[in-house]
Design a protein around this nucleic acid. Structure first.
Length: 412
DNA sequence: TCGGCAAGCCAC
DNA sequence: AAACGTGGCTTGCCGA
């Protein structure tokens, strides 16, 4: 079998251009039906909300809502945005809803439906191309500080997936007759890259053994067995793992988990006691950035953060967190780029007609003929898993999960 | 009428 | 809200 190292590498701009031109198929009728349902439910909610508020107002106006909740109704927990208006972001409304207040709960419902309708159900069909009948995004190659791609007009890198209603949008991304949508994604790639860069043997071993990394983290931190673990305990460890990647603070973790800042600080302390190599890595990364003005990915690409030396403490702290995150996020971006420039050549070399259509940071989406699915999946997963090589051999295996289904929602 | 900012929220 | 990183899109609002 031909090694992936010998497959043709196409320049990334050519790869992106090909993906843009291929486009993706969406089922207009599904979105239009969904839009109607959303409109109806939003209408019912609007009446209910105006009843609860005691007056009609523009539901799309955070300012009007803030005046009603905190000016008129005097609900607790009011916080101002930086311009002095009452804040009404989801976190604020969730706190109020948890205290049994009906109005903020219904507003949250309305906002979710409104977002899905305006940004996705109504907007996506307007991007259907006259001649191809498909949706063609544009990828920006140099729009991010870390080396990620971005996607515009429309952005196909933020299609909903977290809620049941949102997945109805994703379900409209379908394969044409005789084909399947294949989604292939890197499992926990940023944590694996952190384990490699910081050289943490426990984490590397856990990935080698295919363990549940969040449960393992919880077990290490709280001294409880993975078997029969309280879901809450795992959830906290998961929040910490994500926080670590983003340059955690006790304040941020406390807000994320709804716990006190002292307790959050204790979690972080315990984490660094269990994984001192992570703390060392972070300190070394910040130090290098202060010295050089940039940090580097595993493959040597630089990400510049000269303002890490700013005298303003908030600006400095912001750049420190970005500098900690950039090598992790940027290395993951490098890995998937390396896979992308080899993918078409590898598929061609294997005599397969699969077409790479979309990239969503740690995921590649393809269209594959029904009869070729079985032969295509291993080619895709191999190219992705071996993408760091031969330039780098990671201390941690990369796991790629791939699935073929009729729609993106099912395949994901 | 148009451009830009603020707030909010979708994804990884 | 955001002292948890990276983006883009929509609506409301205000001034030119």
């Amino acid at each position: 079998m031909t090694s992936v190292y010998e497959t043709l590498e196409r320049p990334l701009p050519a790869v992106l251009s090909a993906m843009e031109q291929r486009g993706v198929s969406i089922e207009r009728s599904m979105l239009s039906r969904l839009s109607g349902e959303l409109a109806q439910r939003m209408g019912a909610l609007e009446s209910e909300i105006h009843e609860l508020a005691g007056e009609p107002f523009n539901l799309g106006s955070p300012k009007q809502l803030g005046d009603i909740l905190f000016g008129k109704m005097q609900l607790p927990g009011a916080k101002k945005t930086k311009t002095g208006a009452w804040g009404t972001a989801a976190g604020v409304l969730e706190d109020l809803a948890a205290q049994g207040h009906e109005l903020p709960a219904r507003i949250l419902d309305w906002r979710q439906l409104s977002k899905l309708k305006s940004t996705y159900a109504d907007a996506l069909p307007t991007y259907l191309h006259k001649e191809t009948g498909r949706v063609h995004t544009t990828y920006q190659l140099a729009a991010t500080t870390t080396g990620r791609l971005s996607s515009t007009e429309p952005n196909l890198q933020n299609i909903p997936v977290r809620t049941e209603e949102g997945r109805k949008i994703r379900a409209a991304f379908v394969a044409p007759q005789g084909k399947k949508i294949v989604s292939a994604d890197y499992s926990q790639i940023e944590l694996r890259i952190l384990a490699h860069m910081a050289d943490i043997p426990q984490l590397a071993q856990a990935f080698e053994d295919g363990m549940d990394i969040h449960a393992m983290t919880a077990s290490e931190m709280f001294g409880v067995p993975v078997e029969g673990m309280d879901p809450q305990t795992r959830r906290r460890a998961k929040a910490i793992n994500f926080g670590i990647i983003y340059g955690i603070s006790a304040f941020g973790l406390a807000n994320q988990l709804g716990i006190g800042r002292e307790e959050a600080g204790q979690y972080i302390k315990t984490y660094f006691e269990r994984f001192p190599g992570i703390r060392d890595y972070m300190e070394e990364t910040k130090e290098a950035c202060r010295r050089d003005g940039y940090v580097t990915t595993i493959f040597g690409r630089k990400c510049h953060y000269p303002s890490i030396k700013a005298s303003n403490p908030a600006e400095r702290a912001f750049n420190e967190r970005a500098a900690i995150n950039a090598p992790i996020q940027g290395s993951a971006a490098d890995v998937i780029r390396r896979a992308m420039i080899r993918m078409d050549g590898a598929l061609e070399a294997a005599g397969l007609s699969a077409r790479m259509l979309l990239q969503v940071h740690d995921e590649l989406i393809f269209e594959v003929e029904d009869g070729e699915v079985e032969k295509t999946l291993p080619v895709i997963t191999k190219v992705m898993a071996e993408a760091p090589m031969p330039a780098k051999a990671l201390r941690v295996p990369l796991l790629v999960e791939a699935k073929a289904e009729a729609s993106w929602e099912e395949a994901h």
